[in-house]
Design a protein around this nucleic acid. Structure first.
Lengths: 214, 214
DNA sequence: TAGAGATATCACCAGTTGGTGACATACGCA
DNA sequence: TGCGTATGTCACCAACTGGTGATATCTCTA
């Protein structure tokens, strides 16, 4: 992921002096920002507290440590995911399952590209199997699948097609390309920086879905 | 990735007392083993030296620090990649570019599944953009592309197909699925543990290639 | 206004990290 | 044989980590 300049300054507006819920929120916000900007390698109690401009003791008091904090982030994630993914408004009508799947995956790709926090969580998920990561990843995965189920409507895939396997392949490809694109701007010599670059990938996804579903 | 029990014992056979090249090799072996087993989060001068059963000072003396060590690992990687990928012997004859691509990707998937070190490097590559990681990743990517070019033979993709984009999508999917499978044993509810699980994915890859190339 | 309870801060711990300089020891060459 | 050098070891540094107990300070209630 690209290194962004530190902006460890206070990202809280209110004075928030001696206000428990406000401090708690500030810590949560700081945690998300820290993870999004600096990745899981630099994610810890000290870093979060420093960023939230409060003592790390409060992280222990209000969340019971990093694990509790991560769990809380996971709880947040559900609504957050659907917010981000629904940001583009309702889908246009789709006649086939394939068309709807294409709409879903295109939107997922766009949302993921614009969302460093989600990228970081996915990268974390693919790198480690520590229990807290699992919980975060599960929360993310669950939220995603609920959203997909909602968006699918009454459409069903055609017979003789291993739809779950196809979905896995396409979602995995999208996630990996977004991660690598964010990190290095390319993938096996295919550029992944500009919108035009991504249009090639998006077109390929559409083409693959058409070939399998139509 | 699954946690494997520590086997930090000596993985060196010879007494290797006061033998520079042997010590150097031992450090290199230890570095690879450390990265493969415990991931990049636990990868550092201290861990490697501890594992190689020597003083960390020697890592600095013989490699000029972690960066030099990683660079040397990258140099090794080239031959290592082609060794692993060529392990299955020559490919059977292929009539079309699509058939050959399928053979290549199937073998890549198998090799990757069996290779924790490569998995770790890929995960690292997708997570960070630090300069040393870049060099490792570049070495890996370059070796892979050389191998693919060699294996491709004189076959060419058909017109009107964005072959690089298709390759990017398929390789990305394979890498991501292998990573997530190794870490959690599944991906969006599709199991990725047994050989039978992977057969579903492999069949889907074949099907996608056929649809695009034949 | 006085006190109690909540909120925040500080000081400290043991352990780890990356990194360096000084020292001991064994080997090979004169 | 003795000596220089390559090899290996040890001790140390500052900085950081996760984690905890004691203390200060504010706020609200009685």
């Amino acid at each position: 992921m690209p290194e962004t300049p530190d902006q460890d300054a206070a990202e809280n507006l209110a004075p928030r002096s001696r206000n428990r819920t406000a401090t708690r929120d500030a810590i949560l916000v700081a945690a998300k920002a820290q993870l999004a900007e600096h990745g899981f390698a630099a994610f810890g109690v000290n870093a979060v507290a420093r960023r939230a401009l409060c003592d790390k003791q409060l992280v222990y008091r209000y969340f019971g440590g990093l694990d509790g904090l991560i769990d809380t982030m996971g709880d947040d994630l559900a609504s957050w995911v659907s917010d981000r993914l629904s940001a583009g408004g309702a889908f246009p009508a789709a006649e086939t399952y394939g068309q709807r799947l294409d709409q879903i995956l295109q939107r997922y790709l766009m949302a993921l590209r614009a969302d460093p926090l989600m990228q970081r969580i996915i990268a974390w998920e693919a790198s480690e199997n520590a229990p807290h990561v699992r919980r975060l990843a599960d929360a993310r995965s669950r939220a995603l699948m609920i959203w997909v189920a909602t968006m699918r409507g009454g459409l069903t895939p055609r017979d003789g097609l291993d739809a779950p396997a196809l979905n896995a392949v396409l979602v995995a490809a999208i996630q990996h390309l977004v991660l690598c694109g964010a990190a290095t701007g390319q993938f096996i010599s295919v550029p992944l920086a500009t919108d035009a670059d991504w249009l090639r990938i998006q077109a390929m996804v559409t083409r693959l879905i058409r070939a399998m579903h139509d």
